[in-house]
C-alpha cells in the first residue's frame, strides 16, 4: 500500500507522463436539477474532485491498480492514470448547492437549478 502511494505521489509530480482518461458520462435533466454520472473505476472519495469555476464544472480523479505483493503483471488492459472532464454549465444553476457522491467507482454530481427557473405548477382556480 505504501509503495502504491509512493507511485501515486511520483506520478502526480510528473503529469506529462501520466495518461489522462476521458471518463464516460451520462447526463440527465429533471425539472429542478441536472444529474451528471461519471464512470471512474478505482476512485474513492479521497481520490476524486469536483470543482466549479466560472460556470465550468471540472471532474478529476486518480486511479492506480493495486499490484498484489509478490505477483508479476501478466496482462494489463487498464492502468494508472488520471480521469478528467469539463462541463460548461448553464446560467440557470445554483452552483453553491452542487452535491457530489461516489459509490462503486461512479461519481454522481447533482446540480440544482435556481429557484426562479424551476418549472412550477400553477394552481388554476375557478
Amino acid at each position: 500500500m505504501s509503495e502504491n502511494k509512493a507511485i501515486q505521489k511520483e506520478s502526480r509530480q510528473t503529469p506529462e507522463h501520466e495518461p489522462v482518461y476521458v471518463p464516460r458520462v451520462d447526463i440527465r435533466e429533471t425539472p429542478d436539477h441536472f444529474e451528471v454520472v461519471v464512470d471512474m473505476p478505482g476512485v474513492d472519495e479521497k481520490s476524486v474532485e469536483a470543482t466549479v469555476h466560472n460556470r465550468v464544472l471540472t471532474i478529476e480523479g486518480w486511479s492506480c491498480p493495486d499490484r498484489p505483493d509478490e505477483y508479476e503483471a501478466l496482462g494489463q488492459e487498464f492502468g494508472c492514470g488520471r480521469y478528467r472532464r469539463d462541463f460548461t454549465l448553464p446560467d440557470s444553476i445554483a452552483s453553491e448547492h452542487i452535491q457530489a457522491r461516489v459509490k462503486h467507482g461512479v461519481l454522481a454530481v447533482t446540480i440544482p437549478k435556481k429557484e426562479e427557473v424551476k418549472a412550477r405548477k400553477i394552481l388554476v382556480t375557478g
Binding site: 491498480p65 499490484r67 498484489p68 509478490e70 505477483y71 508479476e72 503483471a73 501478466l74 496482462g75 494489463q76 488492459e77 487498464f78 492502468g79
Partner: peptide
C-alpha cells in the same frame, strides 16, 4: 477490461 497478476500459487484477476 482485465488485469492479470501471476504468482507460483495462482493468479489474481482484476
Amino acid at each position: 477490461p482485465l488485469n492479470a497478476w501471476s504468482a507460483p500459487d495462482g493468479l489474481i484477476i482484476d
